[in-house]
Design a protein around this nucleic acid. Structure first.
Lengths: 191, 191
DNA sequence: GATTTTACTGTACACCTGTTCAATAAAATT
DNA sequence: AATTTTATTGAACAGGTGTACAGTAAAATC
């Protein structure tokens, strides 16, 4: 069978305990012992499921990036981000997603946290772009490399946003992204 | 005075010890105790200078990114990366720099390592772009946001490169980057 | 409902962490 | 060369880490 009731219960207890402690202190100085005390779970049991506190947090994070994929694909299906002519600020839901889960992304982008979360976010966005752009293939350009470029460029904007304490609105960043992506075509038209 | 001889000696001993241990195991499971034993330095002394093993490594990293800035500015001064018409594959020295210090960047990009190093690299590249592009300002586009976008896009390519175990040559990636940056202008010309 | 399977517990161990403090030794300053 | 300053040491502390293993209890299976 897939799910032993005992496993579900312990994992739930650990999840709740982590969320409780995350309100008090930052992820990097939460100890396994502390979580287990709060969850009333033996410390040995923790190691049966996870290796570090970070792995426990990872489970939350994956739920959240799942929401990213859902919200991205919902309103306009198969609308490309790179096909600049048709680029509509409303098609990009990434910034709104980050804004919505700001609390979590403050943790994900804090400098003491392992790179792992960054890669999870990167891969999620990259996969969305890869699917979206199956149609638009440029000769001589490695398609995957291109998506890595584009996905991480977007995260670059998010990093800037994070370092400025999320003062911009998601809508503003959408408009900026459209402007940036359109620079070259704008220039070559002579604007 | 700036530099007590004792400080220089201990730091040197710790630096050498770290390099020694890095050949045996990965950064994230090197203990402070181990480094101190090898360096013949009291553990308490370590904490007088650093808080974690990561802070010791950070000193190396900053030396390396200093080389990045040097090699970037040397061959062609003030040649822009974003002004696509003049973009020459030879002007971008970043990929060659990464290739040269591959051994270090394998550590920097490993998923267990703190995000801090990523930010150090990001900021370095962003600063290079910010200086380079003082001339080319686009109305309606936040200049800093634009550089964050561009800097992180380049790192996106590097991440892809890292995940493919650096199989591409730096020259190939330079050519790819030029192609990608030129996509829009190429399209609007009708190619 | 009885049996088998397996998740969890409690205890123990060697080691690492971060901090404190008086004693020492090696610098810098005079 | 004598004195002052300060980096380093060693020892000790409470707590965390990761692992192992036998015993227990709660599931799943029959």
């Amino acid at each position: 069978m897939r799910t032993d009731l005992r496993v579900i219960k312990t994992k739930e207890a650990l999840h709740n305990a982590l969320l409780e402690v995350l309100d008090e202190k930052s992820l990097d100085d939460i100890s396994i012992s502390e979580i287990c005390r709060k969850a009333k779970v033996n410390r040995g049991t923790f190691y049966l499921h996870y290796a570090q506190v970070e792995n426990l947090f990872e489970e939350y994070f994956k739920e959240i990036t799942a929401d990213l994929a859902r919200s991205y694909q919902e309103p306009y299906r198969h609308v490309t981000v790179l096909n600049t002519k048709e680029l509509n600020p409303d098609t990009i839901r990434i910034f709104h997603h980050i804004e919505k889960y700001q609390h979590f992304y403050r943790i994900v982008f804090s400098k003491k946290v392992p790179l792992l979360y960054y890669y999870l976010l990167f891969e999620e966005i990259k996969q969305l772009l890869l699917k979206d752009q199956e149609a638009i293939l440029h000769e001589e350009i490695d398609h995957e490399l291109h998506c890595s470029y584009q996905a991480n460029a977007i995260i670059g904007i998010i990093i800037d946003w994070y370092h400025k304490d999320f003062i911009y609105s998601a809508d503003y960043l959408n408009r900026q992204l459209v402007q940036i992506v359109n620079i070259q075509s704008g220039n070559s038209k002579g604007t």
